[in-house]
Simulated scan of single mutants.
Amino acid sequence: MIPEEPDYLPMKVANALLADGPALQARMAEDGYLFFRDLLPTRVLHALREEVTGILSDIGWIRGGPERLAAESQVLPCREGEPRYFEALDRIQCLERFHALAHEPALLQLMTLLLGEGAFPHPLGVMRLVFPDNPEVTTPPHQDYRNNQGTPRLTAAWIPLADCPRHCGPLAILPGSHRSGVLPLSFHLGPGNRQAVLPESLMHTAWVTEDFRAGDVLLFPALTVHRALPNQHPTRMRLSVDFRYQPAGEPLTEQCLRPHFARQSWEDIYRGWESTRLQYYWQERDYSLVPWDESLHALPADHWDQALREDMIYERTRQRRFRSRNRPDHED
């Protein structure tokens, strides 16, 4: 059963603070997020979306032809971690434009103001391929800290590759939640299979979100509780990227220096790139490696029985929903 969606308030727009590092830091410390309109050039996002939809069309996930950029899904939805998902993700991970987006001058300048000189993006970039009509695996409320560890000052940038109004499933933020510490975990079918257990003090806090446009950027630190809204568009996939930045000299874990899911080596990913400028750039940056703490990421043992039950229910539900949506009009 999909829980009822809460009401959402609009986000505060932070563009007026773009030249003021202390003001950006103060707003982030107060609200736990920063939202910017039109920060990135749409031509850069469009070029990456062209390459991503080219891959999705080539493997048959979306309709090709002149409408390819709309990313109209035509296959049974899948989710992160399934073999079909990696058919797309492994190819997208090799795109030079994908990794270069994290180094866009406007983003790096903003992160320097917010996190200080020497702030840099983790090489681990995340492409999100979110199917429509697949609400059970919508990203649940969670904090990034348990998945990345290292410094709690780690700051995520969430960027849609096209306009993403609320019904297409953008992110939402729970303002002020970063001041509640590291929250307990429970199982969820969505990405990472984990969700934060919210304390009573946050249960009545209003979530904030926006109708995102291409070029908008949302920032939030590793302890801010965030979630995705369900993609309720009847046919279109939501395509977005996550990049994470950290202050110079602070700790990170080895996982943050690997490609997402660590299925390929950096040598494999770099093969065919036109430039070497961004290859292994982090090796010249200032940070300290700390060990991964599995206890921060572990679920209670009894949650895996629940996971098996929910997974079986989900599999039947998405098959039935997909067949119903694609049934010819003349069938009963």
Rank of each mutant, 00 (worst) to 15 (best):
81 G>F: 00
321 R>E: 13
14 A>Q: 06
202 L>S: 12
287 Y>M: 12
11 M>K: 11
236 R>M: 04
211 D>A: 11
142 H>Q: 06
197 V>D: 11
84 R>L: 15
68 R>T: 13
268 D>V: 06
211 D>I: 04
311 D>M: 15
267 E>S: 12
101 L>M: 15
21 G>H: 05
165 P>C: 09
200 E>R: 12
110 L>Y: 03
86 F>M: 04
164 C>I: 05
155 T>D: 04
235 T>E: 14
319 Q>V: 14
197 V>S: 04
179 R>F: 02
288 S>C: 03
241 V>T: 10
289 L>Q: 06
331 E>L: 13
318 R>C: 04
285 R>C: 11
180 S>L: 03
221 P>A: 06
38 D>V: 07
154 L>N: 06
79 R>E: 12
90 D>T: 14
218 L>D: 01
164 C>R: 01
232 Q>V: 10
155 T>Q: 05
239 L>N: 03
268 D>W: 11
239 L>W: 11
312 M>E: 14
181 G>V: 00
107 L>C: 05
230 P>K: 07
176 G>A: 01
18 L>S: 11
69 L>T: 00
108 L>E: 10
55 I>E: 06
90 D>R: 14
279 Q>R: 12
323 R>K: 13
155 T>C: 11
123 P>F: 05
314 Y>V: 01
93 Q>T: 14
243 F>R: 13
89 L>Y: 13
177 S>Q: 03
264 Q>R: 11
4 E>G: 01
251 P>L: 01
298 A>M: 08
136 E>N: 15
139 T>H: 01
87 E>S: 12
314 Y>P: 00
260 H>G: 14
182 V>Y: 04
13 V>W: 02
261 F>W: 13
296 L>V: 01
144 D>H: 02
92 I>R: 03
252 L>Q: 07
172 A>D: 03
68 R>A: 06
46 H>F: 15
101 L>Q: 08
5 E>R: 03
182 V>S: 02
15 N>M: 12
6 P>F: 00
265 S>V: 04
21 G>L: 04
103 H>A: 09
65 G>Y: 07
305 D>L: 14
121 P>Q: 06
332 D>N: 13
143 Q>C: 04
296 L>T: 00
242 D>R: 03
215 G>Y: 02
87 E>Q: 12
44 V>K: 13
176 G>P: 00
264 Q>V: 11
171 L>P: 11
